[in-house]
């Protein structure tokens, strides 16, 4: 008996020993893996951060410093000069206001329009629903170049050229945002809506007080997307805006790109200023955005 026990004990000991022996190299392997992982990640980090760093270098240096060999890698002292020059050429505050106003208003209205459309397409049944939804999706396939001139002509006929309205209106109903929101609305429990109905809530009330609040993450994702779209929108504002004081950021920055002379200090300063609001907007909505991703992952 005792012998047997001993044998068992020995064998377990052996096992643990063997295990230990196995574990040691494993740990080493893991460590090695981690080192590789972090090296790789740092390389990616540098690759993705460097353009922003270079942008900052450009914004604080004289234009000619961007062309030296070896390249200038330290921030310079031309920050204020570039800022003043840029303000003189494009009028930063006016342009910033235009861009913020256009993008902000666009997000609010487009979100209202797209969320309503998505809600109807997700939760109501009516004739031709599928057709309408397919039509929305198909419209994503039309390249904007094809609609540019007819739209321009339309705006010109309505005498709306060079207005904020002309910049905002054409894209208010944004197929991708409708699609995104519809998929999220589909997951909303219909039973909740029904019980609200039994309690006597109107359809508008159900939408605004019950559905919308629980859809915050999806709405945040959609609004980041819409904001980016409008903030970066270039071709359409360029075509419909006719005076420098109406320009949005991308159009104003592009006006710095002359023929034989480009002041990169100004350009980089402008790009820096144009990037800040997007980062701020993302950070504000980040919490919602990430919880939205987690939420959908848990499903």
């Amino acid at each position: 008996m005792a012998k047997n026990l001993e044998v068992i004990e020995q064998s377990t000991n052996k096992l643990t020993l063997a295990e230990r022996q196995q574990k040691k190299p494993k740990k080493k392997k893991n460590k090695l893996k981690a080192v590789w992982m972090y090296t790789l990640l740092s390389i990616f980090l540098v690759v993705s951060i460097f353009p922003f760093y270079w942008m900052f270098i450009g914004a604080t240096n004289d234009s000619s410093k961007m062309f030296t060999n070896p390249p200038t890698l330290l921030p310079g002292d031309q920050f204020m000069t570039n800022l003043t020059n840029l303000n003189e050429s494009i009028g930063i505050f006016r342009v910033l206001f235009n861009s913020l106003f256009v993008s902000g208003l666009y997000v609010v209205i487009a979100l209202a329009v797209c969320a309503s459309a998505a809600y109807v397409l997700a939760k109501y049944n009516f004739k031709g629903k599928k057709f309408i939804f397919t039509a929305f999706l198909l419209s994503m396939m039309i390249p904007y170049q094809a609609t540019l001139i007819p739209l321009f002509q339309m705006m010109s006929d309505f005498n709306l050229l060079n207005t904020y309205f002309a910049v905002i209106a054409p894209q208010l109903c944004f197929p991708f945002a409708i699609f995104l929101l519809r998929q999220n609305f589909l997951a909303f429990p219909t039973e909740l809506m029904e019980s609200a109905r039994l309690d006597g809530a109107s359809e508008t009330r159900i939408f605004i007080s019950i559905v919308i609040p629980s859809m915050r993450p999806a709405l945040a994702a959609a609004s980041i997307f819409l904001f980016m779209t409008q903030w970066n929108n270039f071709m359409w504002p360029l075509v419909v805006l006719n005076t420098n004081d109406m320009y949005t950021f991308p159009v104003a920055l592009s006006s710095l790109m002359g023929l034989s002379y480009i002041d990169y200090g100004q350009v980089m300063m402008g790009v820096t200023l144009a990037t800040v609001p997007i980062i701020a907007f993302f950070l504000t909505l980040q919490k919602q955005f990430i919880s939205g991703m987690l939420g959908s992952a848990l499903k």
Binding site: F152, V239, T243, V251, S254, L256
Partner: peptide, 27 residues
């Protein structure tokens, strides 16, 4: 005189669009 300053390529984008639309919104 009102000068609208824009990038070189942007001048052509706007000019072509305006001409295509039958002379709308041109300077």
């Amino acid at each position: 005189l009102e000068v609208v300053e824009m990038g070189t390529d942007d001048v052509y984008s706007k000019l072509t669009t305006g001409l295509q639309a039958g002379g709308k919104g041109l300077p």
